[in-house]
Amino acid sequence: MTEHPPELDAELEQVFRHWWLHDARWYQGVRKRYGQQAANEINAEAVAFVGRRVAADYLRANPEQASAPSSAELAERIDAVLALMGADRMSQVSQHVIDDRTVETVVTKSFALQMLRAARALEGYECPCLELRASWFEGLRVPVSDCRLECQREGSETCRFRAELKTAQPET
């Protein structure tokens, strides 16, 4: 997480919490009016749009990172995008470099799932995680093969994803 003065951290935390509250109410409204499937589809589209934009903005602000990353660099870029989205404040996510082409992401606490569970709206919810991650990689212009290995929504202790770089990586 980026270091800020305590008062700014508190304000940012509040902004993120209010945004998540808005998102939850919006999802529930769509679900109630148009059905679960429509809510899931629109949610996935919206989260992918935002994820792509955030990742592209990050890349524009860090043009030196436009080259093909190593797996360690990819892990750092994922963390940077998570921080820009506020997810590092609301969830517990870690990156693990598996080898020179592979990064595993482990989510041990998902704020979104906590809020859905609290609202008793978890049934029928389809996590848009793969769509979100695909949008990050697209925005970062990093070709990867990405898959979900475990999902808290489906009863696992963690959510676990594995991204494998598709291009030849720089030698270190």
Rank of each mutant, 00 (worst) to 15 (best):
H96D: 13
H96C: 01
V97W: 05
V97D: 02
V97I: 10
I98R: 15
I98V: 15
D99V: 09
D99I: 08
D99R: 03
D99K: 03
D99T: 07
D100A: 15
D100C: 09
D100S: 15
R101Y: 14
R101E: 11
T102D: 07
T102C: 08
T102W: 03
T102Q: 07
E104C: 06
E104Y: 03
T105I: 15
T105N: 05
T105K: 06
T105A: 12
T105Y: 03
V106W: 02
V106H: 02
V106M: 06
V107A: 04
V107E: 11
V107I: 14
V107F: 10
T108E: 12
T108N: 06
K109H: 15
K109S: 14
S110A: 11
S110M: 01
S110H: 01
S110P: 02
F111M: 11
A112Q: 10
A112K: 07
A112E: 13
Q114N: 13
Q114H: 08
Q114L: 07
M115W: 09
M115S: 10
M115L: 14
M115C: 06
L116E: 01
R117V: 00
R117L: 10
R117S: 14
R117M: 08
A118L: 11
A119W: 14
A119C: 12
R120A: 15
R120D: 15
R120Y: 07
A121Y: 07
A121R: 08
A121E: 14
A121F: 04
L122V: 14
L122T: 12
L122A: 15
E123L: 11
E123M: 09
E123Y: 12
E123C: 08
G124A: 10
Y125M: 07
Y125L: 05
Y125N: 05
E126S: 11
E126F: 07
E126I: 07
C127G: 02
C127P: 01
C127E: 03
P128S: 12
P128Y: 07
P128N: 11
P128R: 05
C129I: 00
C129E: 07
L130D: 10
L130N: 08
L130F: 04
L130Q: 09
L130E: 09
L130P: 06
E131Q: 13
E131D: 13
E131I: 00
L132M: 14
L132S: 08
R133I: 02
R133D: 12
R133W: 11
R133M: 12
A134D: 12
A134W: 03
S135Q: 01
S135L: 00
S135E: 06
S135A: 15
W136K: 00
W136D: 02
F137D: 02
F137I: 00
G139R: 00
G139S: 09
G139Y: 04
G139P: 00
L140M: 05
R141P: 00
R141W: 00
R141L: 02
R141H: 10
V142I: 15
V142D: 06
P143A: 11
V144M: 05
V144A: 08
V144C: 09
S145R: 14
S145H: 13
D146L: 15
D146G: 10
D146K: 00
C147Y: 13
C147S: 15
R148E: 14
R148W: 05
L149A: 06
L149R: 11
E150S: 05
E150K: 10
E150I: 04
E150N: 05
Q152S: 06
